[in-house]
Design a protein around this nucleic acid. Structure first.
Lengths: 245, 245
DNA sequence: ATATAAACTTGATCTTGGTCAAATATAAAT
DNA sequence: ATTTATATTTGACCAAGATCAAGTTTATAT
């Protein structure tokens, strides 16, 4: 198995020699479903590249609730930002969502390469910058948007990703619920509600969007037609009442 | 007025010549209370260093609610992470919290210096890494912790910062409420409740902590005495009932 | 195929924090 | 020192989601 790590944005600026160096300190591992990679608080000497399956990053509250911070897809790296800290500690736990494969890299070794390549530094800063932006957006969603809004936004994103009105959910419902910071029951009820409003049809893991416009307005994204009206969306008005009872 | 920008972590690795170069593209401005610096969506060509007062970074929801993402203190920079993006756009709005002074710097110019100094790159990556960590913690707080927990944590942090059981709130109550993602009414009620439980005493803007241990357990931080017990905190049990009614 | 476990759904009820409105308190301005 | 504006507090009520307890479906393993 010979993977070119340059497919990952983070490594894309490396020359052959540098790739060779990085690979020397690397280690590939195969994980079973829900096998743990590291836990919150562990010393962080290595960072990772997902090459198969999905890795979920999460935190657990004192009463056992699990909040999924991110689900890392193949081709993406994670935990690389920690290598610039004095006493790097993983701020989240990581485990496989289904069977998965990851390559891990030694921080120290990579820092050495970094210290010789401004270009790679710039890549990393770009990556971190994007991640920063994503987290700010996430905080926004969590505090300013309702559960329905978040779920609709996720469905819409998935729909556009696939390019079809008919698609399959990108993970188990319970997992998606945790990713959106809501309980599985709430997730289920919102879907049920959207169905009853003829906004979509659901059949186990498959979703078919029937009324894209309404879905879009519920997701607080402007419709494809024209720009935002004065009151950007009807959720708070009476035209669309989405009460859960 | 001659400020050495090297007090800011971000610039600390610059030599005299580099500082001179950066300063050439800089611009100092004085802001009145609640004067705007930039808004969400503006093109981001410059980043900032606060040298006096406070700058609040916030986002506004479609129904007008304001969420304060951060309050930047003197000596700190902000919006520097954007310079690594292709089409940099501020993801938040910024305005002065009371009268303030900031220096702004040109992204392009700074990137040029960066491209000549690995050391400065490393500083930046360190800064970004910390910020990333902070945001993850914030998401954790918002989704896994109650309003009471968040407020107690803030009080405790402030107490430790000042080193006194008796201290003054770091901003107006309404501002702190927004920072903690709660309404002023809720903020007020929680303080009132903590008072009635003899955990603290409040007099307008001043707080005196009476029962540090309980405060600490409410904030979900382990007490100074010993390590965490099996059930780390009593909030969910009956020993401390903190109902708001 | 059938048993067994895990994931999902549904209903009833409860809690946290939000909303609205009125009352005070604090600060700023004349 | 008053007035006036702004910030905070308090009360009554409400709503979005959470919780708990059954069901029901789907997946996995024999």
């Amino acid at each position: 198995m010979n993977i070119d790590i340059r497919m990952a944005h983070l490594f894309s600026a490396l020359n052959d020699d540098q790739v060779r160096q990085v690979m020397e300190s690397s280690h590939t591992s195969t994980l079973k479903d829900s096998e743990s990679l590291f836990e919150t608080g562990d010393e962080a000497n290595r960072f990772f590249l997902v090459i198969g399956g999905q890795i979920k990053l999460f935190r657990v509250s004192s009463n056992g609730d699990q909040k999924i911070i991110d689900i890392i897809q193949p081709g993406n790296t994670f935990a690389e930002a920690l290598m610039f800290m004095e006493h790097p500690i993983y701020p989240v736990s990581a485990e496989a969502l289904g069977p998965a494969r990851v390559i891990s890299f030694d921080n120290r070794r990579f820092l050495q390469i970094l210290s010789e390549s401004i270009e790679v530094c710039f890549r990393i800063m770009g990556t971190m910058s994007q991640r920063l932006r994503g987290l700010v957006k996430e905080i926004d969603d969590l505090t300013l948007q309702s559960a329905t809004t978040r779920l609709c936004a996720l469905l819409l994103r998935r729909m556009e990703e696939v390019g079809q009105m008919h698609f399959t959910l990108p993970a188990a419902k319970g997992v998606l619920a945790a990713r959106l910071s809501m309980k599985p029951e709430t997730f289920s009820r919102i879907l049920q509600n959207l169905s009853s409003k003829k906004i979509l049809k659901t059949k186990s893991n498959e979703i078919e969007v029937l009324d894209e416009d309404t879905l879009r307005s519920l997701a607080h994204l402007e419709s494809i037609y024209g720009l935002e009206p004065e009151k950007p969306c009807a959720l708070n008005g009476q035209s669309i009442s989405l009460d859960l009872n």
